[in-house]
């Protein structure tokens, strides 16, 4: 657990969270590993974790009967995967598939949600960090939507 706390503490996502809260968060964390081409979660399943990817790459996908699995974004080392655990009704909206052997730290969303409810200061700290992640994803999605490299006619 000690190394887990150190890893979490060094990650930019938890930067300046403070030792007490870090310990609290570490209590909800565990090391996980996904073999290549296995699903980390699937659309519709209950979302009770988020992941801090330490190694490997993960594809966020949508399945379309006409087009198969369409990857909308890939995430890799250092990225945060998943925010559906934060927002009711806590279901995953995409499939997440490990493209390579992927190692991550899973954070128990149920456990964290409870701790955030009990201590709104912690809740604010966590939410602020997720707002940043969501903002980044939204910005890149918007850029993606612009289809900048396409030939304008």
């Amino acid at each position: 657990m000690e190394t887990l706390e150190r890893i979490l503490g060094q990650h930019p996502f938890f930067k300046d969270l403070g030792p007490d809260y870090l310990q609290l968060v570490t209590g909800c964390a565990s090391n996980v590993r996904f073999e290549q081409d296995t699903f980390i979660f699937r659309e519709g399943e209950e979302a009770n974790q988020f992941y801090l990817i330490r190694e490997g790459r993960v594809a966020l996908q949508v399945f379309s009967p006409e087009r198969g699995h369409i990857t909308v974004e890939t995430l890799g080392e250092g990225d945060i995967l998943g925010w559906s655990w934060l927002i009711p009704p806590y279901n995953w909206h995409f499939d997440a598939k490990a493209l390579d052997l992927t190692r991550a730290i899973a954070l128990d969303g149920k456990c964290l949600r409870r701790k955030c409810e009990e201590d709104h200061h912690l809740g604010y700290e966590i939410l602020k960090r997720f707002a940043h992640i969501i903002e980044q994803r939204l910005e890149s999605t918007r850029l993606q939507l612009l289809d900048l490299y396409g030939v304008r006619s």
Binding site: I70, E77, Q144
Partner: peptide, 21 residues
């Protein structure tokens, strides 16, 4: 790539997302 096809196993997302890598 901005738009993937199902065979593509590389990265998907705008180029700015690569800067952190």
């Amino acid at each position: 790539v901005d738009r993937a096809v199902s065979e593509w196993r590389g990265n998907v997302g705008v180029v700015t997302t690569l800067i952190s890598k």
